[in-house]
Amino acid sequence: MSGVPGGARVSTNPLRQLTIDQLRQRTSLKWREYPDCRALGLGDDPAAVFLDGGRVALNSGPAFGTGGDGHVRLNLATAPELITDAVRRMATAVAG
């Protein structure tokens, strides 16, 4: 894969790049997102709160190094309905 301006990456394999392009066009989903949850007051590891209170398993931000406190890693490579349900359950966890 080679880099292009703006940090995007393009595959040198035409079939792989076609697949990536089709996924982006059809899903409009990102592969990962790192939400900043510090304003929610959930502590350094909000992933534990979302798992216990909303039954949503996220990656813990601190596991990704310096600056990860208060963040979670959310994989968005799934159906929009599942993301909607997960976010609803996360909101329930925050509301207590």
Rank of each mutant, 00 (worst) to 15 (best):
R89C: 01
A8R: 15
E81L: 11
G54P: 05
D21Y: 01
A39R: 04
D44P: 15
F50M: 06
G61W: 11
T12P: 13
R89S: 00
T12H: 05
R26H: 08
G68S: 09
M90V: 01
K30G: 04
F50Q: 03
G61P: 13
G70L: 02
A91V: 11
S60G: 05
L23C: 04
L18S: 15
N75I: 07
L18D: 14
N75F: 07
C37M: 14
T92V: 12
R16E: 11
Q17A: 02
G70W: 00
L23W: 10
V72A: 13
G41A: 09
N75C: 12
D21R: 06
G68H: 02
A79C: 07
E81K: 15
E33W: 05
T92P: 03
L58V: 03
V56C: 12
D45H: 12
G6W: 02
L74G: 11
G96K: 13
G7N: 14
Y34H: 10
G53I: 06
Y34C: 05
P5T: 10
L29N: 12
A79H: 12
R24G: 13
P5V: 07
T19Y: 03
V4A: 12
T12W: 00
A93S: 12
A47C: 13
T66F: 02
N13L: 07
A8D: 13
L40R: 09
G43D: 09
L18I: 05
S60I: 10
A48G: 14
A93D: 04
I83W: 00
V87W: 01
P46V: 06
A47I: 09
L76T: 11
L23K: 13
K30L: 13
N75M: 08
T66D: 11
V4K: 10
V72P: 08
R16M: 12
R38V: 14
Q17W: 15
G65T: 07
T66Y: 01
T78N: 08
R38H: 10
A79Y: 03
R26Q: 14
Q22F: 02
D52I: 05
E81Y: 04
G6L: 02
G68W: 01
S2G: 11
S11P: 03
V94R: 00
A57H: 05
A63W: 04
F50L: 04
Y34I: 10
M90K: 00
G68R: 01
A91K: 15
Y34L: 07
D45Y: 06
W31H: 12
N59K: 12
G61Q: 14
V56H: 06
L76E: 08
H71C: 04
P5I: 06
G54L: 03
A95V: 06
A86P: 00
L18K: 15
A95T: 10
A77I: 14
G61F: 10
A47S: 15
G6K: 01
D52P: 02
T66K: 09
L76W: 07
T12V: 09
I83E: 00
